[in-house]
């Protein structure tokens, strides 16, 4: 009975130790995910400067986390996440605008063609 109690207490202490990986771990994971998403959307081309800044900050956030500067690491990681999301949004916006421009051009050409044929 006594041994059981001790065991339980020991497990509790151990699990508490395991469950405390630092508050910014999740933030770094989110930042990493956001960067990967942005890269998939083509943000390296669409918003290169922002992507480079995000990646550089992500490396710094990881270093801070390793140095147990958890608060600073978490803040940097959240900046990385929004920067990557912005790079993603800028890239998608550029693509959409270019598609719209193409569609307008095609339509304009069709309109001119119709007009030309009507006029012989």
């Amino acid at each position: 009975m006594r041994i059981g109690l001790w065991l339980a207490a020991a497990l509790l202490v151990l699990s508490a130790g395991c469950a405390k990986p630092g508050p910014s771990d999740q933030a770094i994971a989110r930042a990493d995910y956001a960067v990967k998403q942005a890269r998939e959307a083509g943000a390296d081309q669409g918003s290169g400067a922002l992507m480079r800044s995000a990646e550089e900050k992500l490396a710094r956030a990881r270093a801070l986390y390793a140095d147990k500067e958890y608060e600073e690491a978490e803040r940097l990681a959240s900046q990385v996440a929004v920067e990557a999301e912005l790079a993603d949004a800028i890239t998608r916006n550029k693509i959409a605008k270019s598609h719209l421009k193409d569609a307008e051009k095609v339509l304009e050409e069709l309109r001119e063609e119709a007009e030309r044929r009507r006029r012989f």
């Binding site: 949004a89 998608r92 916006n93 959409a96 605008k97 719209l100 569609a103």
Partner: peptide
Amino acid sequence: LTAETKAANAR
């Protein structure tokens, strides 16, 4: 930007 993108795609 997202709203603008959405509008451009719709157009």
